[in-house]
Amino acid sequence: MQFLQKIALVTALALPVPLWAGELTVQGRGTVEQAPDMAVISLGARYQAFTAKEAMSEVNKRTQAALDIMERLGVEPRDMQTGSLYLNPVWERGDNRIDVARIKGYEAGNQMRVRIRDLSILGSALDEMVSDGVNAFNGLSFALQDPSHAMDEARRKAVADAVSKAKLYAEAAGVELGAVLSISEGGISVPQPRFMARAEMAMDSGVPVAAGELSTQATVSIVFDIKEAE
C-alpha cells in the first residue's frame, strides 16, 4: 500500500503544475456633461397680520396668484406641489425677564415646489410671481427630465476608462490581460447646481438665470484575470 502511495506522489510531482498568475483590479470613471431641461424652484408667500384669519387670507391670495401665473404659462398641475403650510403666533416679549410674553399677531406661510419643464419661461415666471406677491424664495435647482440616457453613457465611459487603465497597467507590468472576472458599479452621481437668491432681487426685465450644464458621473470596478506566461 505504501509503495502505491509513493508511486502516486512521484507521478503527481512529475506532472506540470499550472501557475496562478493573479488578478488586476481597476476603477473607471465616466462623466457626461449635458445641459439641463428642467428647473425646480422652491418659493411661496408669508405674511404677518394682527389676526390669524387676515394672515392666512393674504397668504392664500398670494399663493393663488402664483398658481394662476404658472397655469397661464403652461405649467401642469402635476408639477406644482405644496411643500409646507403654517400659521404661527408672533410673540412680543418685554424688556424684563419677569414680563409675560404676549401674542402681537400671526404669521402665515405657504411654501411650494414647482417643476418648470420649459426653461425659456423660467425668468419671466419668477419675475411675475414676485411682482404678484411671492416673497419667500428658497432656491432653484436644475435637473434632467429623463437622466437615464446620460447615466447609461456615463456607465459606458466608466467601463472604457477601466479597460484602458487595465491595458496600461498590464503593459507596464509586462503581463497579459485575461478574461473579465467581475464588474461592480460604484455608483451614479447627478449633481444639481443651485442658484440661491432673495425674492427682492427680481428685475423688471425678468430674473436672469444661467442653467449651465449638469455632470452625470458613474464609477465602476472591474477585476481582470492575468494570463499565465507561456
Rank of each mutant, 00 (worst) to 15 (best):
residue 39 A to M: 06
residue 51 T to G: 08
residue 43 L to G: 02
residue 20 W to N: 03
residue 45 A to I: 06
residue 66 A to F: 08
residue 20 W to L: 14
residue 34 Q to M: 05
residue 37 D to S: 10
residue 22 G to C: 08
residue 44 G to E: 05
residue 61 K to V: 00
residue 20 W to R: 06
residue 43 L to F: 13
residue 44 G to T: 11
residue 62 R to W: 01
residue 55 A to M: 07
residue 43 L to Y: 09
residue 39 A to T: 04
residue 19 L to E: 12
residue 40 V to Q: 08
residue 27 Q to D: 07
residue 33 E to Q: 13
residue 21 A to D: 07
residue 31 T to R: 09
residue 42 S to W: 11
residue 41 I to A: 11
residue 29 R to Y: 08
residue 19 L to H: 11
residue 57 S to T: 14
residue 66 A to S: 14
residue 40 V to E: 11
residue 23 E to H: 10
residue 53 K to N: 14
residue 49 A to I: 09
residue 25 T to K: 08
residue 20 W to I: 04
residue 53 K to E: 15
residue 62 R to M: 09
residue 21 A to C: 06
residue 45 A to P: 03
residue 53 K to P: 00
residue 67 L to P: 01
residue 32 V to R: 02
residue 54 E to M: 00
residue 50 F to A: 15
residue 38 M to L: 13
residue 66 A to Y: 01
residue 29 R to S: 10
residue 46 R to F: 03
residue 60 N to R: 13
residue 62 R to I: 02
residue 50 F to S: 12
residue 44 G to H: 03
residue 49 A to M: 13
residue 42 S to F: 09
residue 30 G to F: 06
residue 47 Y to L: 05
residue 67 L to T: 05
residue 66 A to C: 11
residue 63 T to L: 08
residue 42 S to Y: 12
residue 23 E to W: 03
residue 53 K to H: 13
residue 50 F to I: 11
residue 65 A to M: 10
residue 30 G to C: 01
residue 28 G to T: 02
residue 38 M to Y: 03
residue 66 A to G: 14
residue 42 S to V: 14
residue 61 K to H: 09
residue 51 T to L: 05
residue 35 A to N: 07
residue 54 E to P: 02
residue 58 E to V: 11
residue 55 A to W: 08
residue 56 M to Y: 07
residue 56 M to K: 10
residue 45 A to V: 10
residue 52 A to I: 07
residue 45 A to R: 01
residue 42 S to K: 11
residue 26 V to W: 11
residue 43 L to I: 14
residue 28 G to R: 01
residue 22 G to I: 09
residue 41 I to E: 02
residue 20 W to F: 14
residue 35 A to W: 05
residue 48 Q to F: 05
residue 21 A to Q: 13
residue 63 T to G: 12
residue 27 Q to Y: 06
residue 51 T to R: 05
residue 64 Q to V: 03
residue 21 A to K: 09
residue 20 W to C: 10
residue 65 A to Q: 13
residue 19 L to S: 08
residue 45 A to T: 09
residue 33 E to Y: 08
residue 68 D to I: 03
residue 62 R to A: 01
residue 64 Q to M: 05
residue 53 K to Q: 15
residue 54 E to A: 12
residue 36 P to K: 07
